[in-house]
Simulated assay, not measured.
Amino acid sequence: MTIESGIALFIATAIFASIPGPGVSALVAQSLTRGFKTGAGFAAGLACGDLCYLLTALFGMGWVASQIGPWFALLKWAGAAYLVYLGVKAWMAKPPSEQNTASVSEPHTGRSFLAGLCVTLGNPKVIVFYCGFLPGFLHMPELTTTDIAMVVAIIIPTVFTVLATYAWLAAKGREAMRSTRTWKILNRTAGSIMIGAGAAIAAE
């Protein structure tokens, strides 16, 4: 992996992690009702779940690429199509329903972490996302241990930082995070970028 591709991976990860999907919706709901500490624990669980699927995708894709050679392009196109599909869904997504923001007893941070982990592990589409996302930054047939370490070092801290930011904003600016207008802008901006990324990967 080159410095340029590493920077591109960081930027793309930050954008994609910002897409308000089911995990972010649950995170916002947790932070709205129970505060930042609970939200941060939930975010850590989400990021840990991403790590599990990311490693599965990296090792699995490297093996698949080495076995099927040039036919790997078909898998890449399928992944690109899935990114476009996610982008369209982001455009159509609705904001989270308003939650009662009255004081609620704050659960143990460990339980919040496990809840976030279960949310991600219960969404196997995450691994499909990484299968479509990674070929744009890595030459999968020549995947090395160093490449894997660099990808993990870039993606997971970035994902957690973005999610923790959501938690902080939800805890501090409850009305803004519930704003339909704000949610729609985030969805459509990120959705447009994801559709463009899918098209770029397919055309590469």
Rank of each mutant, 00 (worst) to 15 (best):
T145A: 14
I155T: 03
F113H: 10
K37E: 14
I127Y: 06
A176C: 07
L169M: 14
A153S: 08
L27V: 09
L114R: 12
G132L: 02
G23R: 10
E4R: 01
P96C: 04
V28A: 06
G116T: 11
S66M: 12
R188Y: 01
R111S: 13
Y166K: 02
F42M: 10
P141N: 07
V159P: 00
Y130Q: 00
V104N: 15
M140T: 07
W63F: 06
V126A: 11
A26F: 06
S5G: 00
S18R: 04
T145C: 10
G116M: 09
I68Y: 01
A65M: 01
T165E: 03
F113N: 10
A170Q: 03
I15L: 15
F137P: 03
A176K: 02
G21D: 11
L117I: 06
F59L: 13
V104S: 06
Q99G: 03
G69H: 07
V64P: 01
W63I: 14
V162T: 02
S97I: 09
Y53P: 05
L143R: 04
Q99S: 12
F42Y: 15
S103T: 10
R111A: 14
Y53W: 05
G21F: 08
N187T: 09
S103N: 15
M1G: 08
G35S: 07
R188K: 10
L117S: 07
F10M: 04
P96H: 05
P20I: 11
P70V: 08
I11M: 07
I193P: 00
S97L: 10
P22Y: 05
V88K: 01
D147S: 12
A78R: 03
K184N: 11
T109F: 11
A190C: 15
A153F: 00
R178K: 11
I19F: 01
T180E: 06
P141K: 02
C48A: 15
A200R: 13
A202D: 00
G173Y: 13
G87C: 05
L83G: 03
A202M: 10
